[in-house]
């Protein structure tokens, strides 16, 4: 198992937290919470080692469009990059509901 962390600049205050997904095979769980300040922090625990570059590529793309000041915690059980991005977008949607 590998633990990976990333930081991104952020501008918007987020008011609500969101929890989506499940740590089931090929899926992941995302916990999104408001974070004080002007940055976003992502911490990942994944059962599949050696994909730090892929995680960075997926999160770079996600944060190219999203600028919420949040703490995101990901529990991954081998989700594909596409599933990861969908779950992140779902978490944002739930936090804006």
């Amino acid at each position: 198992m590998e633990k990976i962390e990333f930081d991104y600049p952020a501008q918007h205050k987020v008011l609500k937290r969101a929890h989506v997904g499940v740590v089931g095979s090929g899926d992941l769980e995302v916990l999104l919470e408001p974070l004080e300040g002007d940055r976003a922090h992502v911490s990942i625990q994944t059962s599949v080692d050696g994909f730090k570059d892929t995680w960075k590529a997926v999160l770079d793309r996600f944060f190219a469009k999203y600028d919420g000041a949040v703490r995101i915690e990901i529990h991954d059980a081998g989700a594909t990059p596409g599933s990861v991005l969908l779950r992140l977008e779902q978490a944002v949607e739930v936090s804006q509901r």
Binding site: M1, H19, V23
Partner: peptide, 18 residues
């Protein structure tokens, strides 16, 4: 969000759930 995770899974290489 209360994060009552299993303390045993990570040490066996299994991702816990919150």
């Amino acid at each position: 969000f209360d994060r009552m995770e299993s303390p045993w899974l990570a040490m066996q290489g299994v991702t816990p759930q919150a």
